[in-house]
Structure formats: structure tokens, C-alpha cells
Design a protein around this nucleic acid. Sequence first.
DNA 1: ATTGTCGACTACGGTAACCGTAATTGGAGG
DNA 2: CCTCCAATTACGGTTACCGTAGTCGACAAT
Lengths: 114, 114
Amino acid sequence: MKELEREILLSFWKVHILHHAESHPVFGQWVIRELRRHGYEVSPGTLYPLLARMQERGWLKLKVDASAGLRARKEYSLTKKGRKVLEVLRGQVEELYREVVLGEEEDKETQGTA
Amino acid sequence: MKELEREILLSFWKVHILHHAESHPVFGQWVIRELRRHGYEVSPGTLYPLLARMQERGWLKLKVDASAGLRARKEYSLTKKGRKVLEVLRGQVEELYREVVLGEEEDKETQGTA
DNA sequence: ATTGTCGACTACGGTAACCGTAATTGGAGG
DNA sequence: CCTCCAATTACGGTTACCGTAGTCGACAAT
């Protein structure tokens, strides 16, 4: 199911990351361990750029434990902007859950193929 | 919120697509209209390769309305393999919903930074 | 002081996905 | 014919993803 992870599940994990970053700082190795604990492998080459990107976008803010060297742990926590993003995501997750898992229909207008 | 759509929401739509393809065939323009109806724009350059990819992976099967030309509508419906993928996704969506929206904690072991 | 190991991040080169815009095709109306 | 409309295709540029190998500092053992 490697394709599935890349195509879709990785995005789910991104939501998890933001969610966790809301309550406590997260860092690369922690995420990697966390996912492994759930049976998934994500490589550094995927994860670190991902965290950096979220920081660039202003969703996460970085705090390096100063007094440690160049390879020191980088801790990311949610910014105000990140919180807004997370709000939107929560709404979307709920919508997805209702429709795809519970099977609730939305309004339905343009329904069907014909 | 363009970044958010590309980074995360597109994957949610992929799940929607599989879900819909379970109950009736879907095709490119329909998906585009459906998403627009919900306030999102996805361009052909993104969507068509995406559907083709899902077909290559065996999640969707294609049926073109024969007797129509080269640009005829391409209808995709869920395969058996696609149904399995969708099952996995439903589980993951539920998990995501429980944790991120409802705030339920999983086991928690490796919790925290310290 | 030297060596070893471990926890973390960095570098990097190749592949795949995403994006918008423009082009193409066939059918239906006028 | 000519035009318009519904659909898909083509394509070139940008961004994301991947695995593997490299680097650096701290700490322990000898």
C-alpha cells in the first residue's frame, strides 16, 4: 500500500502533526517514531522538508534549543495562522467523515452521471 | 488558502472521488463542477492525470461511451481493489476524526517532548 | 585524551505529482 | 457552413517526495 500512503495518507499525517503541534512542540524524530509506532515509515527526506515548509508558510514556528550545536533538535509549535488552518482542516475532516464514513448525503444537486 | 488545498485538501477530494465512484461512475468534468460547487477550483492539469493514475493503480476502471470520438467522456467506477483501498481510507478518516476533531487520545506512550 | 555510539538534522540527485493555459475533438443549433 | 459547448489532451515549468548517505555534538567507557 505504498502508493496509497504517498497519494493520500501522508496528508492525513500532516493534519496529525498540526494537531499535535497545538498542544506541545513536535520535532522530526518524534514524528518519525510516532508514525512507526502506528506501522508507517516516513523517511527523513520527506519529513524534514515538510516541517520546514509548514514553517515557511507560517503554520508552525521554530524554536531551536540554543546552546546546542548545528544538528540540534528543532521544535515546532503551532502559530496563530496555523491554528486557523487547523480549524479549517477540522471542518473538512468532519465533512469527510460524515459523508464517506457515515454515508450522509449533502444537498445533492448535480448528482449522477446522466 | 491555495497552499492548504495543494498540501492537504486535494487528498481529501481524492477520497471523495473514490467514495462517489463506488455508487455511480464519475468523470472529469463532473468532479470539477462538484468541487466548484463547494467553492474549490481544481484544474484539468491536476484532475485528469489523477484519475488516470487511479486507474493505472487499479482503483478505478474506465469505460468510455463507445461510438463517441476521441474526446468522449471517460467514466470511472470503483474496482474491487479500489473498494479495499476505500475501506482502509474509511478507517483512517475515522481515526483522524476521532483524534483531531473529537480530541480522543490514543494510547499515548511516546508522548511529549521531554 | 581517544574511541564508540546515539540522537538529530542535512545534503542531494532522481522521480513523480501538481499547476495553469492553450489546443483539440465531436455534436448540436442556428 | 459557422459557432458554441462539453470534454479531454498536451505540455512546460514548478514543487513535493523518496531513500541513502553524511555530519555534528553529547555522553560514556576505557
